[in-house]
């Protein structure tokens, strides 16, 4: 058992690393949502001036990374590592961004849990003495994800109520050894969970058990219950995943999440006006809300302690067509202003 591990799946950095800067960029549709004033850039076109949706996603991720570096007055040369992942095949947005950033690069994949996975690994690298500065980023794009996972963008069909909307956007955070900002005090690494969900349009339900398992593990390992945090957010469970998580937290651990628990996919959109059905999904859901909205709220002092539980569905169209269940994962990172 590692010296920094507490409990079964939680690690406590000795000298909690700091997120010294964070940036979030979003597409035009996300820019109409309630957090429009918290984003660093809102694109007016989902093509972002590029010639394909994949190139647009890469442009967004690069923009988020450079904005994040600029805010901290740093250059790519100052960075020790760049950790990034996305949901396109072979995580191309991340690799092609890394090609331009020219920072030693680890590609990571946790589907939509990549934001917390990146933060957790960055915190380990920094606290372990392997790095002073780590840039962690992730992105997703509605149109590039739709064409890979579902249908062509112009294909017409009626949507079911539990369908979620893939968020267009990107987020990046700069994790450093010292500085001003929220510190990563605990990280809980999740286990892959399979609760028998097969419907690739109902990912919230597929991921909710993983989110609850990681949260319950986190509460048990750290001894801090849900009330310790000002806000607990999951990544992209959506409307039904959120309700399922609240129910399961009671039945699996006896924890009451009803007071301070929200979901990034629900927060990002005005669900009454914007037609996103059950809410947003994708890597950018948790990344843009955390690095845009929550980061600023933490810096302003309105929030002191936030638990980010980013959730990912680890399926592909191939596994679904072959009849496999959809496994889910969730990683938790606690961000505290100390």
């Amino acid at each position: 058992m590692g010296a920094k591990r507490i409990g079964k799946q939680t690690w406590k950095p000795e000298h909690p690393p700091v997120i010294i800067s964070a940036a979030a960029v979003v597409g035009p549709f996300e820019g109409q949502g309630p957090f429009k004033d918290y984003f660093d850039h809102i694109y007016t076109d989902i093509m972002a001036g590029e010639r394909s949706f994949e190139a647009a996603e890469k442009e967004m991720l690069l923009n988020a990374c450079f904005t994040c570096l600029n805010k901290a007055n740093r250059t790519p040369q100052d960075m020790d590592f760049f950790l990034a992942g996305d949901i396109l095949n072979q995580t191309i947005s991340s690799s092609f961004s890394a090609l331009e950033l020219r920072i030693p690069f680890f590609g990571i994949y946790g589907a939509c849990s990549t934001s917390a996975e990146g933060l957790a690994l960055a915190a380990m690298l920094v606290d372990g003495g392997f790095a002073s500065f780590v840039l962690a980023g992730t992105s997703s794009h509605n149109a590039s994800a739709e064409r890979q996972y579902r249908y062509p963008t112009e294909y017409g069909f009626s949507r079911k109520p539990h369908v979620q909307w893939t968020v267009t956007g990107a987020g990046a955070a700069l994790v450093a050894r010292d500085g001003e900002g929220p510190r990563i005090t605990f990280l809980t690494v999740g286990k892959v969970q399979d609760f028998g969900i097969k419907d690739p349009l109902n990912l919230g339900a597929a991921m909710a058990p993983a989110a609850v398992d990681t949260m319950v593990r986190h509460f048990a390992d750290t001894g801090n219950g849900p009330e310790y945090y000002d806000l607990i957010v999951t990544g992209d469970l959506g409307k039904f995943g959120h309700s399922l998580a609240v129910k399961m937290a009671v039945s699996n651990g006896g924890f009451d999440l009803s007071k301070n628990y929200q979901d990034c996919g629900l927060m990002l959109y005005d669900t009454r006006k914007q037609d996103v059905h059950a809410g947003g999904s994708g890597c950018a859901a948790s990344a843009t809300v955390t690095y845009g909205y929550l980061y600023r709220k933490l810096m302003d002092g309105e929030l002191k302690r936030v638990l980010l539980v980013a959730t990912g569905a680890l399926h592909s169209p191939v596994t679904c067509f072959q009849g496999n269940n959809i496994p889910g994962i969730a990683h938790a990172v606690s961000l505290e202003m100390i």
Binding site: F195, G196, I197, F240, K247
Partner: peptide
């Protein structure tokens, strides 16, 4: 899994 899929 069965209990959960029923809940969903």
């Amino acid at each position: 899994q069965k209990r959960y899929t029923e809940m969903v």
